[in-house]
């Protein structure tokens, strides 16, 4: 990586962080409705993984999808506009926070039924194999998804058909408010890959460089025909599951302990310690990221609502076929 690339990772993580902090404010003001699942604390996961994907590699994730969208190249403007339900949003105001997508960026969506996108990921990869495209499908999901049947069906099928999928479990320790140990017979989630004869690894999800390195290696092996692989990324969500989570299931001490490993702080220190960037350069990067987010908020607030006739648009491609 050259210096620009190092700084770009930093920039992306700060954009995600700032965008979500602003989104939380807009939610409190009633400008964002529905559910809002913040990625704060987990930014290094998708930033690290998606930084080593190729344009032809497909990305699909669960409903905690704002960061993944930004990393895939969806603009902060389109993400924020979608959160505000505007016609200029990446899903034209029809999807909301949980259903961001931009097919032109090979980002196949946020999906809000836990685990349901795993079989779909297998299908994306099947489509590539069928059409002789050399691409990998990166499928991200939470620890909670590993306890639902879709997980088993999808991982099994991917191995039976040797599909090029990188399964990425973001283990943030809780499925909503239920701790992994209370929900999963095997709390070491990476071990579940063994049931499918799949190569696996585990990585510290608070360190973007480590995530990036492991993901780069696994993606390369999958591209070379290894078949599907499984990566558990150990991370932590600093905010509640969604807005208005009373957080009875964990202590503030636990949250504070994890916050000492804030992925942005860890990376900030790394860049300074390695002499890759100066404090001034990082502060400048933060200001640029904040400006992009403010611009996105201005854009989203000024954007038009969907037209009434849009209510009926896109139920079908064609009523008659």
């Amino acid at each position: 990586m050259d210096k620009k690339e190092y700084l770009d990772l930093y920039y992306q993580m700060v954009v995600i962080r700032r965008l979500e902090e602003r989104a939380a404010e807009l939610y409190q003001q009633g400008k964002i409705g529905g559910f809002l699942h913040l990625y704060i604390g987990q930014e290094a996961v998708s930033t690290g993984i998606i930084s080593v994907r190729r344009p032809e590699d497909r990305v699909i994730t669960a409903y905690r999808d704002h960061g993944v969208a930004i990393n895939c190249g969806v603009s902060a403007k389109e993400v924020m506009a979608e959160l505000l339900g505007k016609a200029t949003g990446c899903s034209k105001g029809k999807g909301g926070s949980m259903h961001l997508a931009d097919v032109s960026k090979n980002f196949w969506g946020g999906h809000a039924i836990v685990g349901a996108h795993l079989p779909i990921a297998a299908g994306l990869a099947l489509g590539d194999v069928y059409q002789n495209q050399k691409a990998v499908t990166i499928c991200m999901f939470g620890d909670g998804a590993t306890n639902i049947g879709f997980f088993h069906e999808a991982l099994n099928l991917s191995k039976v058909w040797n599909l090029p999928v990188l399964w990425v479990c973001e283990n943030n320790k809780y499925g909503m408010g239920t701790a992994v140990e209370r929900a999963s017979a095997v709390p070491e989630i990476a071990l579940k890959a063994d049931a499918y004869g799949m190569k696996r690894d585990q990585v510290d999800g608070m360190d973007v460089i480590k995530v990036r390195e492991v993901a780069a290696r696994m993606l390369e092996e999958i591209r070379s025909g290894s078949g599907p692989q499984f990566l558990e990324v150990v991370t932590y969500r600093f905010r509640g599951h969604s807005m208005g989570d009373p957080e009875r299931y964990r202590t503030s001490d636990e949250v504070r302990k994890w916050q000492q490993d804030d992925p942005i702080g860890v990376y900030h220190n790394y860049l300074l310690a390695q002499g890759i960037a100066t404090e001034d350069e990082l502060q400048k990067t933060i200001r640029e990221a904040e400006e992009e987010v403010e611009e996105a908020v201005r854009f989203a607030e000024a954007s038009p609502e969907p037209a009434p006739e849009d209510l009926y648009k896109h139920v079908y491609v064609s009523e008659t076929c």
Binding site: R58, W108, A116, L118, P119, I120, A121, A122, G123, L124, A125, L126, G127, D128, Y130, Q131, G149, F150, E153, A154, N156, L157, V160, W161
Partner: peptide, 22 residues
């Protein structure tokens, strides 16, 4: 393509393949 007895994966994977042009 013969599949395992996995109805969710059959329909789910078919959706994925359809999304990318099949």
């Amino acid at each position: 393509r013969d599949t395992p007895i996995s109805e969710a994966a059959i329909v789910g994977a078919a959706i994925g393949a359809a999304l990318v042009g099949l």
